[in-house]
Design a protein around this nucleic acid. Structure first.
Lengths: 109, 109
DNA sequence: TTTAATGGTAAGTTTGTACTTACGGTAAGT
DNA sequence: ACTTACCGTAAGTACAAACTTACCATTAAA
């Protein structure tokens, strides 16, 4: 797990750390949505959503492309993958620890 | 992806959203550590670390058990697994979308 | 060209939270 | 018994950031 000046997973975890941004992110799971559609139903204003989208985009968790006057947003797998890889590191260590414990237990029986 | 009153991944993402807590979490990747050892090297005070550990513990990202006067902390895979499962949902959707796009492209050639 | 729809940004406020110091409490050495 | 090491919690502060309203820009439709 190399440590860079600012890791790719760094911004991603920070982005999904906010419940409103998670709500936005989950909305996009169904299908790509315009900014208005995202804001609709959420308990915050549209400008707030715009600010959140900027954070998500910067974290590579969403992609945005214009379609006429609309800004269509969709999930970007790069951020998701970065977080997954990060978590896998800890998963591996846990498995190794478990394995070691199992070996030790085997010795004692 | 079922939605509960307060999801298991909810607290986990919130916990790892903070850079100091990520630093603590990463320190534990090597081996279980006491609170003092965790605080050592970090740019924050020991009480601050204690408060962070509480959040991580509540998110099921670490386990704590006393050993004499020391409180040994180690990584809890339950929180890690919860986040992994959450991310996998989006991963699947992305794969499906990609697959659909590939099919569409195939039709047009 | 006017009107309506979409949405980004600026500026200011407010709230949450990540910190600090101070204190008390427990367990293990001496 | 005293001292030392380890640690959690309370109380208060300071700063980050999640909001708001107001405004302007762009594009499409009337």
């Amino acid at each position: 797990m190399k440590k860079q000046a600012t890791s790719s997973y760094d911004k991603a975890f920070n982005a999904l750390g906010d419940p409103t941004r998670r709500a936005i992110f989950e909305k996009l799971r169904v299908r790509p949505l315009a900014v208005v559609e995202i804001a609709d139903g959420l308990p915050v204003s549209r400008p707030a959503v715009s600010q959140h989208l900027k954070v998500l985009k910067d974290a590579r968790l969403i992609r945005v492309h214009r379609e006429g006057t609309r800004n269509l947003c969709q999930i970007d797998t790069r951020g998701v993958l970065a977080m997954r890889n990060y978590l896998d590191n800890f998963w591996d260590i846990a498995l190794a620890a478990f394995k070691q414990a199992a070996e030790k237990h085997k010795k004692h029986e």
